[in-house]
Every structure is written in C-alpha cells, then in structure tokens.
Amino acid sequence: MVKLDQINISNDGLTKFFSPIEAAILRALWSEGEMTTSELTGKTNIPLTSVAGTLDRLVKAGYTTRRTESINGRVRYVYEPVLSEEEAASEITTKILDSLVQAFGPLAVENFSKYSDKK
C-alpha cells in the first residue's frame, strides 16, 4: 500500500504500488465515487471473502473512508475514496522522487531536468 519497500516496478499500472485487489477497489471507487460493499464486489468481480479484509486495510491506511448506514432494518457500509486519482498519483510521485533524491542527490535532480527537457 504505497510502502516504498513494497513497490514492484515490473508490475503494470497501479499494481506497481498496490496489491491487485487494492488497485481494483481504488479504481472502482475513483470511477463511481460512493459505493456499498455489494456494489464493490459486483463491480470488481472479486468475492467478498477476498475483498473484506482489504477494505479494512484501505480504511486503516487512510485511502478510503466508510460510514455505516441503517436502512429498512439492514445495516451497510458506504465507501468513499479519500484522495482523488490525481491526488493519489501526486502523493505516490512525491514519495518516490523524495527517495530518489535522498539516495542519489544532485544526480537525481539533474536527471529529472533532463527528462522534462526531453518532453
């Protein structure tokens, strides 16, 4: 969950920084906004037994919030992303840039400017 020691550069897209289930949940929440648990399992096509623990972890890590609703004698969670997709991307980028500068100093900064010149 965007811990620097768990970043896997060879994975695709979001799974470089999140587990596949975490990534699927975040993608669903970013596209839909608010979602209940059953909407999440339906949209991601991942069974509840695999999703439930991950949802607890995402809430604990601060990537999503949830509130409890009680309607017609049924209780349910409603999930909401804390960061937008752009905010999450910028948080991840900052973390990684920080660690690169910390490791390589001026050389890293020099490469960033070369990179942006190329663009």
């Binding site: 648990t37 509840l48 999703v51 439930a52 607890d56 209780v75 349910r76």
Partner: peptide, 27 residues
C-alpha cells in the same frame, strides 16, 4: 464492531458481531 470481514463470536457474557456480518445476513 467496525470491520467488513463477516465475523461473530462470544466472549465472557458478550456477543460480538462485525458490521460485515450485519451487511451480509438477512434477519
């Protein structure tokens, strides 16, 4: 208690159920 994982257990003179279980089961 606050958890999406469906779970219920008894301890002492108390019964604990997770919100995940309340979500999943009907009355």
């Amino acid at each position: 208690f606050d958890s999406a994982v469906p779970k219920a257990f008894a301890a002492g003179r108390s019964i604990f159920i997770s919100i995940g279980l309340l979500e999943l089961l009907d009355e």
